[in-house]
């Protein structure tokens, strides 16, 4: 166990972005402020469509050179690359797939570790091709940790949701003062005038739940939907007003909604009255 400290993430892929316009190009596309990478080596963000809905969540990594490395889900890589290149026009940016593999480690003291920019309690990434004795293929362990932490990831879980439903505001994925990017208009309007009634939350469950299963309250009203599950943990999008409900079920399995460590109490307490994310 202790020697296999790196969990291989075969479902994630690194794309290398190279060229003099890389930063300016990404700044116009993603929800977070790329200039933050001058002082930190990781940045989480979404790529939205023009309607303000999520195409994919991305992690950007700086690894000691001018190039940026964009981590995304492998299955959505082709679509994402095509979507990004559509906006390139005459900007100097080249995208190539990196041969480096992606690993997760809980040991953030590692010199090569890039701490997760979403939530500091969620370990770190290591890139490269480390010796096989250090590597565990137990991806399910990573997924279980991720579900416990309440962090949704990848287009399968997030596509077509709104950035605040995916907790982008609480997981450092959205900047509200960076300027224009694709989908910014709706996002800014939601932040300043909207009420966020549904968010992704982690659940404890008593068995595996089908992806897409509806979450029902005690009156059998539909209050949410499961987006990821194993036999003890799920992630689902839930109406915040139903958070305290004792009798949630999905697919016939009992569920208990949990408050993630990074979610402030006021998000759950003021789910009807809070009107602006920019209020303190």
């Amino acid at each position: 166990m202790s020697t296999q400290r790196l969990i291989k993430l075969p479902h994630r892929v690194l794309l290398k972005l190279h060229g003099s316009d890389t930063n300016a190009f990404l700044q116009g596309l993603i929800t977070n402020d790329v200039t933050k990478l001058q002082t930190q080596n990781g940045l989480a963000a979404f790529l939205l469509n023009t309607k303000g809905r999520i195409v994919e969540d991305v992690l950007l990594w700086r690894r000691g050179t001018d190039d940026l490395f964009l981590e995304c889900s492998k299955e959505n890589k082709t679509i994402l690359t095509k979507e990004i290149l559509k906006y390139r026009l005459r900007k100097q940016v080249e995208i190539t797939e990196s041969s480096d593999q992606i690993f997760f480690t809980e040991d953030v003291s590692d010199k090569q570790a890039h701490r997760d920019p979403r939530f500091s309690g969620f370990g770190a990434r290591v890139f490269g091709n480390p010796s096989s004795s250090e590597v565990s293929e137990n991806r399910e362990k990573y997924e279980n940790l991720r579900r416990s932490a309440g962090i949704a990831e990848g287009s399968q879980e997030l596509a077509e949701l709104l950035p605040f439903q995916a907790n982008g505001d609480l997981l450092n994925m959205v900047s509200l003062d960076k300027g224009c990017y694709v989908g910014q208009e709706l996002t800014a309007r939601t932040a300043h005038t909207g009420v966020i009634r549904r968010r992704i939350l982690p659940f404890e469950c008593e068995g595996q739940v089908k992806i897409g299963a509806e979450v029902l309250d005690e009156k059998k009203n539909k209050v949410g939907k499961i987006i990821s599950s194993d036999t003890t943990r799920c992630l689902g999008i839930l109406q915040l007003s139903s958070f305290k409900s004792q009798k949630l079920t999905a697919d016939g399995v009992s569920l208990t909604a949990k408050q993630p460590e990074w979610m402030p109490d006021k998000i759950l307490a003021n789910n009807k009255t809070r009107t602006s994310l920019t209020d303190s």
Partner: peptide, 11 residues
Amino acid sequence: EVDGGGCSGFE
């Protein structure tokens, strides 16, 4: 000129 950027993708 048309370039990538802005809240609808091209400006």
